[in-house]
Amino acid sequence: MIPAGASVESMTHVPDINSPEEQTRYERGLAVLAAVDGGSAPAVMENLADIAPALAHHVVAFGFGDIYARPGLDPKQRQLVTLGILTALGGCEPQLEVHVRTSLNVGLTTTEIVEALTHAAGYCGFPKALNAIFVAKKVFAERGLLPVG
């Protein structure tokens, strides 16, 4: 319920992505992203720039500058969580592909990735786990990492 005398517009806060605070978050996010991504994320951000620059900003500032930069989990642990979540969600195969690459970049082995995706089958079902395995297989093949063993 909107309080008397207020409007939706007056209650909505939209951060200025060009403010110094937002730029600090964005720069921190870019640094984290560069350390783990291996180069594919900038292309994603560039593809968003003309239609949704604020979304591109928030993916970097929030996703990597705030969340991924938190202490408590190392990059390998974060990627295992991300692989499990994207597998369970299903329909996120393009994002899963990026994160399989990122998982390899941060030092997860092909065996660890396959085990994480296989483990997910018990919680989210075989179709989603199979889709995730086929995404991983594509990335492994691109990197010359097949057969997995």
Rank of each mutant, 00 (worst) to 15 (best):
F62I: 11
F62V: 13
F64S: 04
F64N: 08
G65I: 04
G65H: 09
D66H: 07
I67V: 15
I67H: 05
A69G: 09
R70F: 00
P71L: 01
L73T: 06
L73V: 04
D74F: 02
P75Y: 13
Q79D: 04
Q79N: 12
T82A: 10
L83F: 03
G84K: 08
L86M: 10
T87R: 01
A88W: 13
G90I: 09
G91I: 12
E93Y: 03
E93A: 09
Q95F: 01
Q95Y: 03
E97T: 03
V98M: 13
V98T: 15
V98I: 14
H99P: 02
V100T: 08
V100G: 08
V100M: 09
R101M: 00
T102G: 15
S103M: 11
L104K: 04
L104G: 01
L104W: 07
N105L: 03
L108K: 10
L108P: 10
T109N: 12
T111S: 09
E115S: 13
E115K: 11
A116R: 07
L117K: 06
L117G: 01
L117Q: 01
H119K: 04
H119N: 04
A120L: 10
A120P: 06
A121W: 04
G122V: 11
Y123C: 07
C124M: 09
G125A: 06
G125F: 10
G125Y: 14
G125D: 13
F126M: 15
K128R: 15
K128M: 06
A129F: 08
A129N: 11
L130D: 01
N131G: 09
N131R: 04
V135G: 00
V135H: 05
A136V: 02
